[in-house]
Amino acid sequence: MATGREIAQLCGVSVATVSRVFNQPETVNEDTRERVLRVAKELDYRPNESARALSTKQSTMIGLVWDTDHRRPGWRHPYLQDLLIGLKSALSAHGYHLLMLATSGDAREVGASLADPVGYVNMTRRHHLGGLVLIDSGSDAEAFGAFAQSGVPCVALDVAIEGPRATYVTSDNAGGARAAVAHLVGLGHSRIATITGPPGNQPSDARLSGYREALRDAGVEPRADYVAAGDFYRASGTAAMQRFLALDEPPTAVFASSDEMAVGALLAARAAGLRVPHDLALVGFDDIEVASVVEPALTTVAQDKPGFGVAAAKAIMAMITGSGPDGPVVLPAQLVVRDSCGARQV
């Protein structure tokens, strides 16, 4: 691979000019800049990122803080995997790369821990990272608050944070839940149960609020025995559905706060001899890949997973360039009607 000195010789400019083309392009006239970039592309020249970070005190790396502790299943969730792909693609479009920081929620383990977020902030500054993207794993709110107050550009996904250079991106979770439950009411259901995510999780709490609002708007008083807490994963959906089916008056419809839990509920209903949607209507949330291929295909609330990445990248770039942060970004959530709710048979 060519060096910066070779590029400079071929273009008839100084090494310092080549450096400015890649680090401070606005300081180089357009003709020279285009000539250097053309030759660099022809020779497959890539600036040394470590040296670039040292000279500019800023790298093209964005740190990802995400607890991947093997004892916690969050990092394996299909929705989060899709979101991460969208984020990586959106940052790449701005010339930035995503660097996962080794994390753990266990303060007893060696290395940086979410129990001590100062270590991550120091790591970010030491490596001159452009900013941080924060993904909540369920119990990280206190650590995220410390990140938000650090002055490092931070964007959190699905958890509200406030700080001098911090913002967050989320979906209209309450609105999506309202649409799902209103749809079930419109199909004639009044005994509608819900399987929530973990209590205290912000998207889960918002979806529960939307569920209750939709029922009250329809003149149906929410029942405590029609609410079961899950953890967004399939097994908890199965357990919640089994609990509902054991009631003296089981529900005729269930809104699950994730597609994974909806699939678990579907399996429990089948095991009990019920037919979906003939005996039980079912709606999920997320619109992950399995929603469209399970039988019957799952009615769900789709989140804009690519939109999360675009919005997060835009917010990070705004803070890096000094024009942000703007307020939080709330993306629309859209009801996708398939077979599991019974609408196509009405």
Rank of each mutant, 00 (worst) to 15 (best):
L134T: 01
P164L: 02
S209Y: 11
P325H: 05
L266H: 05
M100P: 13
A179P: 11
S92F: 10
L266M: 11
G130M: 04
G230Q: 03
P306Y: 04
Q242W: 00
R126P: 09
L245V: 12
H94R: 14
G145E: 06
Y211K: 08
A115V: 06
Q202L: 10
L245A: 11
G138M: 03
A269F: 00
R243S: 15
F232L: 12
V155R: 00
A281I: 01
A143D: 00
S55Y: 04
S258E: 08
A141L: 06
G12Y: 07
F22S: 05
A318F: 09
T321A: 13
A112P: 14
D44N: 15
D205T: 05
V337Y: 06
R46W: 13
Y96L: 10
G74H: 12
D217S: 15
P277I: 01
G138H: 04
F232M: 08
E42C: 09
V310D: 11
A160R: 14
M317Q: 13
L132R: 00
G219R: 06
T299N: 06
Y211M: 08
G74R: 03
M123D: 10
M319E: 02
V13Q: 00
K314Y: 05
M241K: 04
A315L: 04
L114A: 00
D248C: 06
A313Q: 05
V39H: 05
F144I: 01
T17P: 09
V152Y: 02
L208F: 08
P203R: 00
G119C: 10
T252G: 12
A302V: 08
S89K: 12
R5K: 15
L101G: 03
R165W: 05
L54D: 07
I288W: 04
L215S: 03
D248E: 15
D116C: 13
M241H: 06
S50D: 07
T124R: 04
S92P: 04
R178N: 06
L101S: 08
Y233M: 14
A148D: 00
G273Q: 08
P222D: 02
D286L: 04
A160T: 14
L298G: 00
M261G: 05
F255G: 01
T300P: 01
A256F: 05
S190G: 13
Y96P: 01
D217P: 09
Q58E: 13
A246D: 14
T17H: 09
P73C: 12
V110D: 13
D136M: 06
M241S: 11
E42S: 14
Q345G: 01
L215T: 07
A8R: 04
G307A: 13
D217H: 13
S209G: 01
L87T: 03
D116G: 14
L101Y: 11
G219I: 12
P198K: 11
L83E: 10
G86Y: 02
N29T: 10
P277K: 11
A240S: 07
M241N: 05
H70V: 09
L114I: 03
A311F: 04
Q202V: 10
G111I: 06
F244D: 01
D287Q: 07
E109N: 14
